[in-house]
Structures are given as structure tokens and as C-alpha cells.
């Protein structure tokens, strides 16, 4: 299989995943497209190093998350994590039934959005992967830290978010 065929196959199979990651970090459609294109460029550049040691989806998520961290189109210090009512697995961010119900109200969602954007860049990356439905093990594989470490970090973020939202 040529590099071009391999690339086309990966993009065809994973474009939704890549687009989702791009949507988390850009509210503007044009910016999403620019970042999507940058992820594709980095997939092409990294293609020769794909040995199949990890699942293809994990590999693609790594490229997408790493691109988001180094995305040249915007200062990532100000990078936002965008969510909306349709965001998949949004409830998994808050393991709290009361808050889940509250989230259905638009103003609570806005508050969550504001709090998410107070998070550090790495915490945003962790949450974006969680919203994608990745397991703790898969998130650990993408970021390169241990599974218990991922659990600790995510637990801390969830607690922080719950406290902030309940306190409102």
C-alpha cells in the first residue's frame, strides 16, 4: 500500500474523530477546518512512524491532541474547550445526577463552558478525550502517563467542576 493510499484510508476511517477534536478547540467553522487540515498534515508527516503498536484510533487521537497543543493558528494558552448540549458523553464529565439535570438548562451549560475554559491546557486535552468516550487506559496511551495518574487528574478536574457548579 502506497503512502497516499494509507493516508486516504486513515483519513476516511477517522475523519469524524479528528473533526470532533477540532470542534472542541474551535468555535469558528473556518478555524475548525484550518486545524483539521493541520492534523492531516501531521498525520502525513508521522505516517512513516506508524508501526501498529497502538490502535489506529489512539494513534490518530495522539496526532490530533498533539496538533491542538502546538497549533500554530492560535495562541494555545488561550485555547478554549467548546462544548454544547449535543456534545457526546457530556454527562461523563459530571458524575452527579442533580447536576446532569441542571445541565439541561442552557444557563448551566454556559457555566460549565466557562468553567471548562478556566482549566489548564492539559486538563482540557484530558477532558476532550473523555468527551470522546475514550477509556482511562486509552487516554493514558494518548498522553503518555500512567492510568492511575490519568484517573487522579480527571477526578481532580471533575471535583473542581462540581464544586464550582454547585457553588453557583
Amino acid at each position: 500500500m502506497s503512502k497516499e493510499e494509507k493516508f486516504n484510508a486513515i483519513v476516511a476511517e477517522n475523519s469524524t474523530r479528528i473533526r470532533n477534536i477540532c470542534r472542541y478547540y474551535n468555535s469558528n467553522g473556518e478555524e475548525q477546518k484550518d486545524m483539521y487540515q493541520e492534523v492531516l498534515v501531521n498525520i502525513w508527516k508521522s505516517l512513516d512512524s506508524f508501526r501498529g503498536d497502538s490502535a489506529l484510533s489512539t494513534w490518530v487521537y495522539r496526532v490530533a491532541v498533539n496538533t491542538s497543543l502546538t497549533y500554530t493558528g492560535k495562541a494555545f494558552r488561550h485555547m478554549k474547550l467548546m462544548v454544547n448540549g449535543d456534545t457526546k458523553n457530556l454527562n461523563s464529565v459530571l458524575d452527579d445526577e442533580d447536576l446532569k439535570e441542571k445541565l439541561e438548562q442552557e444557563d448551566q451549560l454556559d457555566k460549565l463552558q466557562t468553567e471548562l475554559n478556566q482549566l489548564s491546557v492539559i486538563d482540557k486535552a484530558l477532558i476532550s478525550l473523555m468527551l470522546e468516550g475514550l477509556s482511562m487506559k486509552e487516554i493514558a496511551d494518548v498522553i503518555g502517563i500512567t492510568e492511575p495518574n490519568v484517573k487522579v487528574k480527571i477526578h481532580r478536574v471533575k471535583t473542581q467542576l462540581k464544586e464550582k457548579l454547585k457553588g453557583e
Binding site: N8, S15, T16, R19, K33, Q37, K45
Partner: peptide
């Protein structure tokens, strides 16, 4: 293999691949 029709609307792969090959 599952293909994604939305992909073609999102970005045109052919010019991108040409650029990358270049």
C-alpha cells in the same frame, strides 16, 4: 472500509496530498 462522506465537504484531500507530496 467505512468512508466518511462528510470528509469531502470538510476539506478537499487532493490538493492537500499534492502539497504534502511536494
Amino acid at each position: 472500509m467505512k468512508t466518511d462522506n462528510e470528509n469531502s465537504n470538510y476539506t478537499d484531500l487532493n490538493p492537500l496530498i499534492s502539497k504534502l507530496k511536494k
